[in-house]
Amino acid sequence: MKPLPIEVRSLACERDQRELFTAMSFDLQAGEVLQVAGPNGSGKTSLLRILAGLLPAVAGDVHYGGATVFSGRGRERWRQNRLFIGHAPAVKANLTAEENLSWLCALSQPVAAQQIAAALEQVGLRGFEDVPCHTLSAGQQRRVALARLYLEAHPVWILDEPFTAIDKAGVAALEQHIQAHAADGGTVILTTHHSLEHLEGVRCLDLGQVA
């Protein structure tokens, strides 16, 4: 899929009659990584959920490749091009890692079992394909969810706290994968309290300062 620029225009968000941010605007070119930072409760998750399309924005819009996402033609293309992995990893405890991934991928594009096995190996879960996920640790369950990043071909990734419960080696591998995705022309928007300063070309949006 062709990478396209994302323009956020005067976005506003309100939760329980409390204004989290107003008139937020920024541009993201294809190939950029944006880290959304800020103290707890500053609206990081809300911003990501608005961008993903889960939460309606009070005002403003997102332009993707020139078309508006919330109110116009860009909607369908945005739906097909963005991948959202939230706080809750969407991993069913009673299904195996392979069943979970095959269903989650089928929601956009079905993938073959060999691809799933390869992706699980990439996230260090080789041999856990047929194990029910409730027997996996929190970090391993998060890795199952993150295996989608190796499976699905979405150019835009929206990741809410992807590093939660992941060990050091896993974090390094994920950082590398994010950089590789950006180098391929993909765009990544993520929140984390973990410092990404050592990575090249990561922009930071501090919601604590915007508000």
């Binding site: 889960l54 369908e76 739906r79 959202f84 706080h87 809750a88 069913k92 929601l107």
Partner: peptide, 17 residues
């Protein structure tokens, strides 16, 4: 309820289907 709590429902809502 369980699909809501583990985040599966979010993925359903986001799906193009």
């Amino acid at each position: 309820r369980s699909d809501y709590e583990d985040g599966s429902l979010e993925q359903w809502v986001l799906s193009p289907h």
